[in-house]
Design a binder for these strands. Structure first.
Lengths: 213, 213
DNA sequence: AGGTCAAGACGGCCCGTATCGTATTGACCG
DNA sequence: CGGTCAATACGATACGGGCCGTCTTGACCT
């Protein structure tokens, strides 16, 4: 608040002369930051585009120019914060699986409280095919593909049965973390990741035999 | 639409004389029905109390008299539809576990599309302690307790290890079903319940040894 | 008469669009 | 090279409309 930036009053611009042609990028940064900030303060339901615009010292039209609605805006803001580091093949299957699961947990429970935002987005997406498609192809699927590669490596090594249902393994892990995060408000108990991975290693869900789908 | 019920215009009331003094009960029924109907048509985000009142041919004040906000209204409506049949002890552990998981799946994927509403409610509840409390104590916990009893029976019989983490088993099942239902829009593949149960029977998650919490 | 209800008026917040004046920019021109 | 100019993106703000949650009204019921 109090961000009384009269017009473009270039008061704090030590870099005004250096970074040229950037106007829109600066605005984008401020919008993303305000979105994440208000998302944390008020949650998805109470987040308002008008509020974001005001907080970012930006006209509403500037927000609507880049994102058609709240869901798209939040999607973009969240995506910026979801690091995804590929897991290198070290030869140690359990360590690799732990790294994958650990990273997923960090995404859900790390800064930004993604665990609270993602369900809201997914729920809304159920009635908005375009949003669902973007969520899948831009956010979930790339990360899922990298995780899948790790599990498939474990299968290839023989550390998991050949008929392991790889997508189901990941959906079980993610589903547990996400649901647990909604159901209880405390963080996951220590050792959770290990127990998920070890249970999978001991007996992963198998593909149904009579149906490849 | 077209529900032009002018005032109390008791036009189609063959039973007008019989059901007297039951005005409020009738209204409650109509409100619940309209809520579920509009929930299915428009989804949680686009559901409107004003819309429910109109559809139920009821004044807005009548809705607000019983439920303080949209979340509470939807909670009540959904709760009405979540049957919960206790699973009788038959001695056949696998059959009992299948029954529990099957019932959970029916709740999420059966009529009413609870799988799309529940995440929205849980997400909203994260910022509204009172709602979260009601959700837990009135909706989730009773059903969870009955399911827990079945799994604990299996442990007592020795069909599952003594250090089985019973709550985690159920959260894994529920988490998978719920998350899977958001992520994909097709129904769960056939045999899913069997695979979940069998994976658990083969190697359930164990309690952490160094921490009872 | 007193109580209950549907209808709907009310001020307020937010939506998504449109308009306005300004500042920056890159192309064109003298 | 330096100056001009049409485009463009911006912040601000007005606008009609929808829904919120509260409050008033008047018909109906007992």
């Amino acid at each position: 608040m109090g961000r009384t930036r009269t017009l473009h009053a270039v008061d704090d611009d030590a870099d005004a002369g250096s970074t040229r042609g950037r106007r829109d990028l600066e605005a984008r940064e401020r919008i993303m930051a305000s979105t994440l900030k208000l998302l944390q303060e008020r949650g998805y339901a109470r987040l308002t585009i008008e509020g974001v615009a005001t907080d970012a010292a930006v006209g509403k039209a500037t927000v609507y120019r880049s994102w058609p609605n709240k869901a798209a805006l939040v999607l973009a803001a969240v995506q910026d914060r979801l690091a995804d580091v590929p897991t290198a093949p070290t030869g140690d299957t359990r360590a690799e699986l732990l790294a994958v699961a650990e990273q997923a947990m960090a995404r859900f429970y790390g800064s930004g409280e993604v665990r609270l935002v993602l369900p809201a987005l997914l729920g809304e997406a159920a009635r908005e095919p375009a949003l669902l498609e973007r969520l899948r192809t831009e956010v979930l699927e790339p990360r899922n593909a990298r995780a899948r590669a790790v599990v498939e490596r474990a299968v290839a090594r023989g550390d998991l049965p050949a008929d392991t249902d790889v997508p189901m393994v990941l959906e079980q892990w993610a589903g547990y973390m996400l649901f647990r995060g909604l159901w209880h408000d405390d963080p996951l108990p220590e050792g959770t990741v290990e127990r998920l991975v070890d249970a999978t290693l001991a007996s992963p869900p198998r593909r149904a035999v009579w149906q490849g789908k």
